[in-house]
Simulated scan of single mutants.
Amino acid sequence: MVKISDFQIKDVVNVFDGKRLGNIGDIDINLNTGKIDAVVIGGSGKVLGLFGRDEQIVIPWKDIIKIGEDVILVRFRDAGNGNYLETEVK
């Protein structure tokens, strides 16, 4: 069994560029199935938090590659003009 607080202390790292995206601030749970649909990484504060926050990053559960002791590896691609996820082509 894993607690939500265990997820929140892990760093989320993008496997495309190795950058740290942040920490999980929230999770999206499907109430019908009881399964996690996505994790939400909170936006970082701007100028001491006075001028708002960056957009949140929502990563579908299927794009989480590995959950380790200290880090969560995810597939995430930043398009420059907006964030999008790159999914595997099958």
Results as ranks from 00 to 15, higher is better:
G22N: 02
V12D: 13
V71E: 15
L21P: 02
T87I: 07
I59G: 05
D6H: 11
V13R: 09
Q8D: 02
Q8C: 12
V40N: 10
N14Q: 08
N23G: 05
E55M: 02
A79K: 09
D54Y: 04
D70M: 02
E55N: 10
F76S: 03
Q8P: 01
N83I: 12
D37M: 01
G82K: 11
I67M: 15
E88K: 14
V13L: 12
G25H: 03
L31H: 03
V74T: 08
R75P: 01
Q8E: 14
T87H: 13
N81F: 09
F51H: 02
I24C: 11
Q56Y: 04
R75A: 05
W61M: 14
Y84A: 05
G22T: 02
D26S: 13
Y84H: 07
V39C: 06
Q56F: 01
E86Q: 09
N81G: 11
L48R: 04
K19V: 04
V2M: 14
Q56G: 01
A38I: 00
W61C: 08
G52R: 02
V89C: 00
D11I: 07
D17S: 07
W61Y: 07
V89M: 00
D28E: 15
K3T: 10
M1I: 09
S44G: 05
N83P: 06
D11Y: 13
L50Q: 06
I36A: 04
V15R: 10
L73G: 00
E86A: 10
Q8W: 09
F51I: 12
L73F: 13
Q8Y: 12
K66E: 15
L85F: 01
D6I: 00
N83S: 10
E88S: 13
V89I: 12
V74Q: 04
G43R: 02
N81V: 01
V15S: 10
I9E: 15
G25C: 05
V39S: 04
R53N: 04
I29S: 06
N14S: 15
D6A: 07
I65M: 09
R20P: 00
R20I: 12
L48V: 06
Q8R: 14
Y84T: 06
R20L: 10
V74G: 05
D11E: 15
G68Y: 07
V74D: 03
D54F: 02
W61A: 14
I9R: 15
Y84E: 11
I67P: 05
L31K: 08
G18I: 04
K35P: 00
N23H: 13
G43A: 03
F7L: 15
N81C: 00
D11R: 13
V71L: 07
I29G: 07
T33S: 15
K90F: 07
D54T: 02
V40G: 04
N32C: 00
Q8M: 15
D17F: 08
I27V: 15
G82C: 03
V74A: 08
T87G: 13
F76L: 11
I27W: 06
G52V: 08
F16M: 10
K62Q: 06
V89G: 03
V58I: 13
V15Y: 11
L50S: 04
V15G: 01
L85V: 14
K66L: 12
A79V: 03
I4E: 14
Q56A: 11
G52C: 06
I4F: 15
